[in-house]
Design a protein around this nucleic acid. Structure first.
Lengths: 324, 324
DNA sequence: AAAACAGTTGTAAGCGTTTACAAGCCTCTC
DNA sequence: GAGAGGCTTGTAAACGCTTACAACTGTTTT
């Protein structure tokens, strides 16, 4: 392992035969750089593995700090949010913004002013939304809320596609393992499941909606209970990958083979769940980048609007044609 | 002067009638400053609420960065490690050290040099331990390993006390829900359970050791299976709070009342588990501060030694006298 | 053909801090 | 009374980066 010094902007400038000013303009995506020069610089950046030093940027005062506000309590342990958090941090950094380390009070409000805020995992009627708006503070919500800058995965369509995937494989006896429906994401995914069935002219009974509470344990219990009371299905749509894990554990304990007897689709495509699960992939990086872009608009004072990020099916080994 | 602007070292220097160099020497507690001057400077620092800007310090290479090395994979989602991580970050900050954001390679080794390292969640025979030692890099382990600077909760005694608590309440039919015993913490907690029983002259069968794999789902499955095969107990010692949650969920589904029929003790005392669980409290802040102190000793090259942080019983509502 | 302009690039000051070095002041020694 | 040496303090360069501004090119316009 080499303990060599990190390359600096000067190194990049020297190797690409331009000045540090030009390199700076390139990495900050400022206009007025010849495309050829830009390409050359980027090549050197790549080769050297150059990463701008945060401290220096901050020193020049061009690193506005932004606060990422997570829901208080247990939600910070949800793998999805950890990923999102990291992608946001990256995206902020790329735009010359800096994550504020400011602690938050018990309600989850920041103790110190930042240039803007990103709200994650907001519950419906989260008091912080109104608070931020009342204070006129720029913020963006990862989620859905009227008259705010917000970005969210296109959950209804995503869940619909997951369900349709099972339907197309011939499954008609389905269950949906729901998340907490007091969250928008939980509701939308449920709604997608509904609509996919309706589109096929199928109906479902309320019992087919199993409450998994967004945890593997919750999903396990719901599925196990349903099945041992005689409920049967050949396909399960879980509203998160973690819940899919719980679903599969339950099926394993029930002696039901996946995917031979039951197909399972997850949602999120988190890397740690493993390489076998068929799931809906969210582009978390894109969501993060969009959030940052919207935040900049919020800071510049334009009119709020919402954005949806597409979600796509990734077929792996937990789904198969019915009957085999 | 803009009143909102943070005061800088120059402001302090001007107001106290000395140079920035002297102010710097004062705040960094360097020798060779006249006591009177020092007092005057400190007074101004106090009055202005001056706090040195970390970014500038870093730029001069004064702020040593230290890498926190977490085990690769899923362990980063374990709430305990998230807490520890945050407390460590705080402790480092207070000592003028800074958390390095350096990414790690697939083995979990840092890609970039830091002044020192803190190793968390190390597996036995973690290759990184030997690596760091071979390279002569200063590091501290949160855990146990011979001939290294290390700090860890006093798990064997803690687990013994948890078990003793149940024994004192009259419970003699106990189970231990173990974590992964390829981790030192898993083994020590198991050992504490053993020794507490032995001290009372009680024996236990291997079936009383339920493998919960440090997850709530794992604990749930283990307990549920044990009980439904006819295994009975009136007290359960879980090797983590999360597993205690799984244990209680299983008991609930089995129709067993806690604590009326079965008492449950957790371990860690993580805030999010709720206010009802009787558990063993680790002082995570203290562990973090100790780790930083040891790291500084490691950097200064002294002889390695280990420290144990005490763990204490917090009695709440999931344990009670047997039979009521 | 000069002037104006647009597009691109280089130059250098400045951000807040640390620290090697120089410089000042004392007191002491011979 | 001149140097030596110990304290104490000031000075200024350096850290990596951004950006206002200057400077250069080539193309239009007049």
């Amino acid at each position: 392992m080499d303990l060599r010094r990190q390359p600096t902007i000067t190194d990049v400038a020297r190797l690409s035969g331009v000045s540090t000013g030009t390199v700076s303009r390139v990495i900050n995506q400022r206009p007025g750089v010849h495309p050829e020069t830009k390409a050359r610089v980027l090549e050197v950046v790549e080769k050297l593995g150059y990463v701008p030093m945060q401290a220096a940027r901050e020193l020049t005062g061009h690193a506005d700090t932004v606060g990422i506000l997570l829901s208080p309590g247990t939600r910070r342990y949800i793998p999805y949010f950890i990923h999102l958090f990291e992608r946001l941090n990256e995206a902020l950094w790329r735009d010359g913004l800096k994550l504020s380390e400011t602690p938050v009070d018990s309600v989850g409000l920041p103790l110190e002013a930042a240039r803007g805020y990103v709200l994650l995992g907001a519950h419906d009627h989260d008091p912080r939304i109104e608070y931020l708006r009342d204070q006129g503070l720029p913020f963006v919500l990862v989620g859905v809320y009227p008259h705010t800058f917000c970005v969210s995965p296109d959950d209804e369509n995503g869940s619909m596609e997951a369900t349709r995937h099972l339907l197309e494989l011939g499954h008609t006896e389905l269950v949906h393992v729901t998340g907490d429906v007091s969250f928008q994401a939980g509701r939308e995914r449920l709604q997608g499941f509904r609509r996919a069935l309706e589109a096929k002219g199928l109906s479902y009974r309320p019992e087919q909606l199993l409450d998994g509470d967004f945890t593997s344990l919750g999903a396990y219990r719901a599925v196990y209970k349903y099945w041992s009371r005689g409920g049967r299905f050949t396909g399960a749509v879980a509203a998160s990958d973690e819940m899919a894990v719980g679903v599969m554990a339950a099926l394993e304990d029930l002696g039901v083979r996946v995917p031979a007897e039951v197909s399972v689709v997850g949602y999120d495509d988190l890397p740690e769940v493993g390489e076998n699960l068929t799931t809906m992939r969210q582009d978390i990086s894109e969501i993060a980048r969009t959030a940052v872009r919207l935040l900049k608009e919020a800071i510049s004072g334009s009119k709020p609007y919402g954005v949806r990020s597409p979600v796509r099916l990734v077929v792996r080994k937990t789904t198969s044609q019915i009957g085999r």
